[in-house]
Design a binder for these strands. Structure first.
Length: 865
RNA sequence: GGGCGCGUAGCUCAGUGGGAGAGCGCUCGCUUCACACGCGAGAGGUCGCAGGUUCGAAACCCGCCGCGCCCACCA
């Protein structure tokens, strides 16, 4: 380090993320290290496909957590020397994006229908250009080492071609088909949505009882319903076949009130005799269960609710055009008037709502495109069973299998404009349909004009191809060969079915192999009060604001420390802890750089017991972090690092060697060498987790021939440096230091006073000097020189305090007595344990010996007092 | 209805068979020549409740109480 550098560093008493981060980021980006060349085959290459954020969205805490974990893995593997690719892409997010732009249009007093499909799509693309780069800037601020040079978008030409290719192939295989089925209709987005986009909410409704008179006029049956308005589309009434009460009714006819239609009484095992009256009205057009029953009995399927969520003309002039709520009130009033309303009671139950628009789902029969999933699911279940895909935590694999075992057809068409339009063409003149990526100009059968299907695909259909469509599939691209399959997929629990399962199915189907070997499921970050983090609730916390406040390293560390196998509340304290670590590491580094011999090489040169100790501890933390990362245990990796830096490196080692650094001669060179070595290893060890501060400090400690830390080697634990003897000695020294400090504090001896003492403790000659330094003691070997005025118990011995200046003993008698009482209680407990014959006989000898040793230690301390 | 998870210091959470821990907060002391976003020392816990297994349980088993999440077609 040059003198000006040295002086500049001296002034920087705090780590300033706002000043450092842009500089470091720029260095990384221009280094080209985020972009691996795809020149080799898969081999030991390492890749992760970052879950594509919505293109017009903002970074949220879930992203911050995912960046922290994935980028830690990516940086770690890059430092292991593996060609490493962190795949970047954004998602067009069909419904979400379209609805945002529709809202914008609404503010302008127009609609997408009014401006037309082409103009509308232009508007969305313009919107995307405006907002799309935002998310990438935010990812950079977190330090995500994504391959920014190859950013993908799910509507890119090449990506879209992959989607079309998949659709046609699955159609040709007979897995994709078109048909009239009951779907979840979202009146908000005016589109069908899949089962997975529906959420159930508790709603307080009313359960109405309605009498349906027999056609012959001899009595009635009473049905119960929470949706009286759907009675207008009833086409049957059902009872359970074994229900004695109604057996004779089966086959008879009732008259539908208000409408006058005759309905057959049918028998079906679906009906629960114990619910309500045991008679169920059947509305195949507006209820999923009734739809199934209707199909199996060949019932007519009537529809009285339109795609706008209002009563349609089919219901007749009396109710047509009414909203569901008003229609319900009107129907109930009419039923009452007709004298067939038999009762009503409050009823709370679960009702489906659209996850996207928040509106209540209308089950409707609709002509849609579906995909049969059972055939694709089978091999995707197998790869999880035989361990080729491993879930972390494991139980998520069971959740996955449970869902896959019961998988149902997927409604893949959406009545939207923003997305991949179906490669399906209909002939205007005849019945011909073409499903192809290369449609002919005109119909091959009748030469009629072709018209493309209006619908687009569910966004998740394209997302399912993400790990290979981003790498150039279906072309035989070098990137695909080099980086598919990817290694780990990191995402939240909420999209295991929506995304993870479908990627596994599609990866196996189209690439012949599962798209990743490990699935790490992250926590869902909740607001500090335990509620969901969301903008609408006002509980959201913006990761970028947190970066502004605490720095990117702090946010990353906090996220890693928070990460868990279950949902976690956002912890500002963990982020602050990360900020503390970054600052601590920075300042410790300043101290090292300003104190060491400038000519000392970075190498382990232990010249004293504390050197052997820190090298041993370093080897242990290196092994631990490595193990934790391999197990996706980020919290313990981060917190273990924190403990090492604070609890061992800074609190003890730096303090222990200050005297030697202030000295001269070869020992100063030796300790400087070791210190520099330990610092460099620590920086490299910490870099994957807190990259900015470590890269910044690295610029001061790297050799002229070395590049950025991001491209340096990850440290390997040196087992030869493990030194249990040195660890035991330092453990004693630390305990002794703390005992003496505690005593001094209690008795009120001023911190500056150097207290004369005599240490009576066998076998710690190598470290008593260290205790003296740390506890401000003067070791008085001349035993006769001063009188012993007090004694302090330390493990396995005692420290006699001698008379001296500043040694004013006040309340120490109390303290000693307190300590004695505590010791006696502890000794009693341990003796009782040893007196238990069963314990001595049955417990492992090592445990018994350990307890005996502990007793001996406690006894000698008590005796010393 | 089925499944999963959680109840440990004031708060947020580690610890999963042998001496109750961390961060934050709190108290006391310290302008110690890296850091006051600091350093040192402390206080604070019937480990949800009740049984069981074991020489030994915060941890393993059973039950109960409380909280959360996921899945599921009872109108």
């Amino acid at each position: 380090m040059s003198e000006p550098e040295h002086d500049a560093l001296k002034e920087r008493t705090r780590f300033d993320p706002a000043e450092v981060e842009p500089r470091i980021l720029e260095a990384w980006l221009s280094s080209g290290l985020f972009h691996p060349e795809a020149e080799r085959d898969r081999g030991d290459n390492y890749s992760i496909a970052f879950p594509p954020p919505n293109v017009t969205g903002d970074l949220h805490m879930g992203h911050a957590l995912q960046v922290a974990t994935q980028d830690t893995l990516i940086r770690y593997h890059r430092m292991l020397g593996q060609p490493t690719k962190f795949i970047l892409g954004t998602d067009h997010a069909g419904i979400g994006t379209q609805m945002q732009v529709e809202k914008q249009l609404a503010r302008e007093g127009t609609t997408r229908q009014a401006i037309g499909r082409d103009a509308f799509l232009e508007r969305i693309w313009a919107w995307k250009e405006l907002h799309g780069s935002n998310i990438v800037d935010q990812l950079k601020r977190l330090g995500a080492s994504l391959d920014y040079s190859e950013e993908r978008f799910t509507l890119d030409e090449a990506y879209a071609a992959a989607v079309m290719h998949v659709f046609v192939r699955l159609f040709d295989r007979g897995l994709i088909y078109r048909g009239n089925y009951m779907v979840n209709w979202d009146p908000g987005s005016r589109s069908a949505i899949s089962d997975l986009e529906v959420e159930e909410r508790e709603v307080a409704d009313t359960l109405y009882s309605i009498a349906y008179p027999f056609a012959e006029g001899d009595g009635e049956v009473v049905v119960a319903t929470v949706r009286p308005e759907t009675m207008l589309a009833d086409t049957a009434v059902a009872v359970h076949p074994d229900d004695e009460r109604y057996r004779e009714y089966v086959g008879r006819e009732v008259v539908l009130p208000l409408v006058g239609r005759r309905l057959r009484v049918i028998a079906d095992v679906y009906v629960k005799p114990e619910f309500g009256t045991g008679v169920l009205k059947i509305t195949p057009g507006h209820d999923p269960n009734d739809f199934e029953i209707g199909r199996s009995h060949g019932l007519e399927e009537l529809s009285v609710i339109g795609e706008d969520g209002r009563i349609s003309d089919a219901a007749g002039p009396r109710f047509a055009g009414l909203s569901i709520e008003r229609a319900r009130a009107a129907v109930v009033a009419a039923l009452e008037q007709e004298g067939v309303l038999r009762g009503s009671e409050p009823y709370t139950h679960k009702v489906p709502f659209s996850h996207r628009s928040g509106e209540r789902i209308e089950p409707l029969i609709s002509l849609q495109w579906f995909m049969r999933m059972d055939e694709l699911a089978r091999p995707a279940i197998d790869v999880v069973i035989d361990g080729r895909v491993r879930f972390h935590p494991e139980q998520q694999g069971r959740v996955y299998r449970e869902w896959m075992d019961n998988i149902r057809p997927w409604c893949i068409s959406r009545q939207l404009w923003w997305g991949h339009r179906l490669p399906v063409y209909y002939c205007d003149a005849c019945e011909e349909t073409y499903v192809t990526t290369a449609p002919p100009e005109r119909c091959g059968a009748c030469d009629g004009r072709l018209r493309q299907d209006e619908d687009v695909l569910d966004t998740w259909f394209s997302s399912a191809l993400y790990p290979f469509a981003t790498l150039g599939w279906p072309q035989d691209a070098p990137e695909l060969r080099a980086f598919y399959p990817t290694d780990v997929l990191v995402t939240g629990r909420d999209i295991i079915f929506l995304w993870v399962a479908r990627m596994i199915m599609m990866g196996i189907e189209f690439c012949g192999t599962e798209p990743f070997s490990d699935v790490y499921i992250t926590s869902i970050i909740q607001a500090p009060d335990g509620r969901r983090m969301s903008k609408s609730l006002g509980t959201g916390i913006d990761p970028v604001e947190e970066i502004d406040r605490h720095g990117a390293d702090a946010v990353r560390f906090g996220m890693l420390a928070m990460s868990s196998t279950q949902d976690v509340k956002y912890s500002a304290e963990k982020v602050a802890q990360g900020q503390g670590l970054a600052n601590k590491l920075f300042n410790a580094s300043r101290f090292v750089l300003m104190s060491i011999d400038p000519d000392a090489p970075a190498q382990a040169r232990p010249a004293a017991i504390e050197d052997r100790w820190i090298l041993s501890r370093l080897a242990r933390i290196e092994a631990e972090v490595t193990l934790r990362l391999a197990r996706f245990d980020f919290a313990h990796a981060a917190l273990g690092l924190y403990d090492f830096v604070y609890g061992e490196l800074c609190d003890w080692y730096l303090e222990l060697v200050k005297g030697r650094l202030a000295g001269a001669g070869d020992d100063r060179v030796a300790v400087s060498s070791t210190l520099l070595h330990v610092l460099r290893e620590t920086l490299a060890l910490a870099h994957p987790m807190i990259p900015f501060v470590t890269e910044e400090v690295w610029s001061f400690v790297r050799r002229p021939d070395e590049g950025l830390l991001v491209g340096a080697a990850f440290p390997v634990a040196d087992e030869d440096r493990l030194d249990p003897a040195a660890e035991a000695e330092l453990a004693w020294a630390i305990a002794a230091t703390q005992a003496v400090r505690g005593w001094r504090d209690e008795v009120g001896i001023k911190p500056k006073v150097v207290m004369p003492v005599r240490v009576l403790s066998e076998g710690h000659d190598e470290v008593v000097g260290l205790v003296a330094r740390m506890a401000r003691l003067r070791l008085d070997e001349g035993a006769e020189s001063a009188a012993c005025v007090a004694s302090v118990g330390v493990p396995g011995g005692t420290v006699e305090v001698l008379a001296g200046e500043g040694v004013d003993l006040g309340a120490h008698a109390d303290r000693l007595e307190k300590r004695r009482t505590g010791l006696r209680a502890e000794i009693d407990g341990v003796r009782r344990k040893l007196g238990n014959a069963a314990f001595v006989a049955k417990a492992p000898p090592a445990v018994v010996d350990g307890v005996r040793e502990r007793l001996a230690g406690l006894e000698s301390e008590l005796e010393a007092l």
